[in-house]
Amino acid sequence: MAKTGTFADSLFKGILTVFAGTIILVVIAMIVMMFWNSLPTIKEFGLGFLIGSDWQPASDVYGALPFIYGTIVSSVIALILAVPVSLGIAIFLVEQAPRSIASPIAFMVELLAAIPSVVYGLWGIFVLAPFIRNYLGPFLQDYLGWLPLFQGRLTGIGMLTGGVIMAIMVTPIITAVVRDVLEVVPTSQRDAALALGATKWETTLIVLENASSGIAGAVVLGLGRALGETMAVTMVIGNAPQISASLFEPAYTIASVLAANFAEATDRLYLSALIEMGLVLFLVTFVVNAAAKVLVMGVAKGTNAARQA
């Protein structure tokens, strides 16, 4: 009995190790394959690929900077808009709202996360773009028009629209994760704070502080979706490889150019350029995730130290 039990346990452990090892293999295989297939452009352009701003497949000139710029700026816009809103919703659901209101709102948030990307894209073209062209854009130009960010012609299609649609798409993800994180903060902490005479606001601050590493993780998850979002963004960002100070001008993201062109890329160098773009996106995501992890560890250490003091 004991013997077979040991055997079963070690077999079980072995199988789990194989499964866990698969994920590492997949990541390594992807990096190796992407690197291998992008060798033609790496050899041809070297670092120039990353800092070049001309993208002309017809002339075999490939510079990825406009796409890297578009990817990062649109994701930053998305996070600036989505993080405060998501935190607000999550705090409301956990700390303030009675169950009868919290459940339906939480359900709606989860529903938003399940809507396919292309539906967001269509909504973006038919509702969001006209709204930005007719209302939000003119409003921003009236009050903040002196900023280069809000100058130029208003077509409803562009960096800002792409960022806003991404924000709407990542909000449910960040909200859902933050809500789960806040819910596991022990009630005793809230009770203790309230018993010491803290206001609701002060209590919430304490809860947020204790949940900070989880919240940072939620933001990283949201950023991951924003960086890799293809369809909805392709439909509203304007798909023009240019770097413009204005958020109303069309832009392009790495994920969008891959989605729009990969199937039709027949030329060897073109294919290689697109694959190298995929590699760049992979590395950007990797660096961002790693940076966030370090940040979270730092914050967690800080809170622990404060608690012990």
Partner: peptide
């Protein structure tokens, strides 16, 4: 395409949708 002129859309329906809306 000339930089700074206009916008690209994927597929015929993409171009059509944007023109219809803009």
């Amino acid at each position: 395409w000339v930089e700074g002129v206009g916008s690209g859309q994927p597929r015929n329906d993409g171009v059509m949708g944007l023109v219809k809306q803009t």
